[in-house]
Amino acid sequence: MESSQKYLDPKILARLEGLRLRARRVVEGYVSGVHRSPYHGFSIEFAEHREYAPGDDLRYLDWKVFGRTDRYYLKQFEEETNLICYLVLDTSESMRYRSSAAAMSKLEYAQCTAAALAYLVLQQQDSVGLVTFDQEIRALVRPASSPSHIQQLIHVMDESAPERKTDSGAIFHDLAERFKKRGIVVILSDLFDDVAKMMTGLKHFRHRRHDVILLHVLDPAELDFPFRQITMFKGLEQLPEVVVDPRALRRAYLKEFGAYVHRLQQGCRMQQIDYSQVRTDQSLEVVLSTCLAPRM
């Protein structure tokens, strides 16, 4: 299977055809009469005419209609603006994990999700960029809006090899500095890192007025801890191994994990960051719908 087919399942994408990616807040200004778009004329499509009212911008008067009808009409355009979407994909070793309950590893799932999002963004002639990282930035693809740009993104994702530790906090700081233009930053990661550092980095994104969507990709086993046999758990990302009776530890683990997720959600809420927990046994359609519905 080709990479594009692998990530862009036509069935999934066909269902998403009706979706329109919308920034929840103003990225480049979109309310007519309140802001002026810096990108007027570009990617603005005619929609209909409306009778002139005092206060309307005279630049949009359709003089041809005035000439034919002797009445003032304004040209109405689709309220669209240029959008830049930054896809930030975690390719650390922990993303390699896949339990028996899941069809894909966390990384594979995140790659699928990123590809689908990129496709959707490009479909509406917006720009999409990609960053892969672990403890440092592994690849950075600048935003572009050409349809062929998807091939490059997929190629970069294919090249990513999950082998190293992660250092999300520092990476987020670095990226906040690099993303010059405001846009939507979609982070796809299991976020197994220091929460405080991560939140500092995410805060940096918000400081640069980016709209941040945090897709917290988790394996169902990490959420449910369903193991029964005594198991030696070998830590990824250079963490130690331990032999435990999972049944005896389940409650304690879930408590610890729940506390961690709670801290994460609380931090996101304070920074007005959209947090979505994504289970890798969920349908991708559900994930995208959950993620994009607020922006339609």
């Binding site: 197994f192 198991t231 830590g235 961690y260």
Partner: peptide, 11 residues
């Protein structure tokens, strides 16, 4: 049995 585990910190 042996198993690689990502959420090791919490375990």
């Amino acid at each position: 049995r042996e198993m690689s585990w990502a959420a090791m910190e919490y375990l």
